[in-house]
Design a protein around this nucleic acid. Sequence first.
RNA 1: GCGGGCGUGGCGGAAUGGUAGACGCUGCAGACUUAAAAUCUGUUUCUCGUAAGGGAGUGGGGGUUCGAGUCCCCCCGCCCGCACCA
Length: 849
Amino acid sequence: MNMSRYNARVTEPKWQAEWEKGAVFNAQVDHNREKYYVLEMFPYPSGRIHMGHVRNYTMGDVVARYKSAVGFNVLHPMGWDAFGMPAENAAMEKKVHPGDWTYQNIADMRAQLKPMGLSIDWSRELATCDPEYYGQQQAMFIDMLDKGLVYRKNAVVNWDPVDMTVLANEQVEAGRGWRSGALVERKELTQWFFKISDYSEELLGAIDNLKDWPEKVRLMQKNWIGKSTGMQFRFKTTGAPAGFEELDVYTTRPDTLFGASFAAISADHPLAKALEADYENIAAFNAECRQMDTTEEALETAEKKGYDTGITVTHPFNPSWELPVYIANFILMGYGTGAIFGCPAHDQRDLDFARKYDLVVTPVVCPDDQDPDTFTIGADAYLGTGKLINSRFLDGLTIEEGKTEVINRITVAGMGEATTQYRLRDWGVSRQRYWGCPIPVVHCEKCGVVPEKKENLPIELPKDVTFEKPGNPLDRHDAWRNCECPSCGGAALRETDTMDTFVDSSWYYARFTAPRADTPTVAEDAAYWMNVDQYIGGIEHAILHLLYSRFFARAMNITGHLPDNAVEPFNALFTQGMVCHETYKDVDGKWLNPDEIKPVDDGYVDGAGRPVTVGPSIKMSKSKKNVVDPEDIIDQYGADTARWFVMSDSPPERDVEWTASGAEAAWKHLQRVWRLTDEITQMDDTAGSADEALALQKATHRAIDDVTNGVEGFAFNKSVAALYQFTNAMAKSKADKVTKTASMLTMAQLMQPMTPHLAEEIWATLGGAGLVAQASWPAVDPDMLVDDTVTMPIQINGKRRAEIVVSATASKEEIEKLALASDAVVKALDGATPKKMIVVPGRIINVVI
RNA sequence: GCGGGCGUGGCGGAAUGGUAGACGCUGCAGACUUAAAAUCUGUUUCUCGUAAGGGAGUGGGGGUUCGAGUCCCCCCGCCCGCACCA
């Protein structure tokens, strides 16, 4: 027989050209069809795609192709998150303009992505560094300014005095700038902020409606917003400097007020700062607190430390009760009022602190199963429920009743009130950098801070900049900075801050609905395409990107750029796992790339034949060298193999381990499917039997059902398993040519979302009409899923002992009779009658003896 | 410390409370071949047994149930996130 071999290198580009020729994936508004918007988090154009991209985009592609096949009008776009620091770093290191570097990277990555055969509407491609894109972002900034969603205030930044630049937290290493090594200073700058905190309650409440988001992400967002309800009240102080006659504290446990034994303030509290001037020891202690490493590990081991200021405060319900005021290292200025009262019995940190400084520990909540007269606190604070004790007028109340009572009395006395706190703070968007979207405002001596006129947008970044000198090139570009005041026409200066790149990614999903429009969005397109029906990306964006996007969609609604129903832009979210690989080290402990090693009998050796140590499988990363380049895999096996592999085995939300043998197996499988197709074309028309035909048809419908369920349930690994099973059935089948051809055409349809090129080739070879990419999804015939007979296991006392074959339509009684007559049951019963019989038709028979 | 998740063969992983280990990898045996590769067939949880067949088994311990990987309680281990958040 003349066997043709499937050559992905030839076939894949052929079908990609066909799709492009037919503009198969270009999306157009069609009000007669229901839309479906699939979006994967767009990539940063680093210049190389990696396996994580392959997995992410293949998942999105499977969904897009499947939804299209079942009749939706699908939008599946791609773009580039193209602003950001790496381009400036490259500019400094390689003397290349950030724009040139970025656009070259985009070209390189697009060239690597296209061979994957993704069903992307490339006509909608955008990059956030295109003036066409960021100009619209500037227009929205101006609209947001107009609606009071943007404001300026002073904020502290990490300042590198050598590089003359602001550093992100991750660029500060052990208190020094990562590039210059200079000691980082805390510097106050006037910066731009979005009023996201006004939406704390709204963003929190709406999380409950995000039913198709992972529970984990919803929880992380809730915690980030960090709502707490409590009470804020004022202590009267004794011995404090002028201006500090009162101390404002916040508590979530007003009920424990009678268990208070001290008050504590943050080292950054104004009172602590005021004391610094007069007391050297306090200045030293505060300095120590501020230096404290805030990493988790350090905090865990950090000892609770305090400094007794000598100041006291008066208990609000007992004028003769004085509490000492400490400066404590575990109080943060950024939350609440930066001051607390400590109730050691019911807060672990306060307890640790009290034990260290020998402060009173009075329990005020007694668990219901304990005697109030003997209940004491040992090493652990009591955080549970119970009745209040040792609390005068609160005694006997529950915690909730106590809170209400204390808040009432404090409020009546005019000492404080119930308050709600959120952890979420306003979003600072100013960046003192070049490669970002310029903030479109002008500073005029006469008019102040004035928004640029919209007709002057986009405010483009000047091209002629250098990075040889430290600092922001925009600051020293006089020709760009000097401008006309949009208000009075006089001489003015441009704002040189650019926007945080999270702003760029907070609305690109909306821009994709009308990427070339000369307004940020177009009402008709946004109304039709929004929301994103399925968003797919990494868990690392669980908080910031998704929260900012949710806020921005609301801001766009307020400024008229998105309809009311698009304030929650992502209907469903899926967070995929990472691609991992084993790690390898040579005898010197140097990391080795997988292609630098070769297998031997008991492990691997390196190029010089020296043994290689195999380490655990962890996320592919350049630093560990455990990377497999998608381009190499596509060159060697083709895109379908890479796509098939990343969809197989592991559930999408979990990490997948890339193995050479797994990739090889994926390739072999696709070759096998092709071989089976080829065999069908060469079959004799008269071969095969009717029985075999029916069995294959049943296997086909079983496969349709299983693959569909897998894709619908985001369990692509199960779809892959079902296709393996179907292939095995196909290989073994002795059905006639017509039946086999029909089944193989169905196979092509079912494989199409995952291996689109091979699917097209099979489809074309066997005479399918048009492109399989445009064929509708095969319908399952429920009758074909039912067998005439069914094998049922028989359990005796819950242990499987035998099985019988019964008619699928047999009644409970009939099955029971057959079971009782079976050898195993007769033998086990030995003439006795069973105590109980459980018969679940089609499932199980359990005989209890 | 707090919060979340996970624990099933040599490995990745399947399993509406109903035959644990689908499917894939690996290993082993065989067919084809002068040989190899490729392909095909069989086999592969452990254990006792020549076999027929039996026993054990889803991190550990208890419980609910006719029946538990799945539900409940306690414990152990691993992974992820975080903000000592009052």
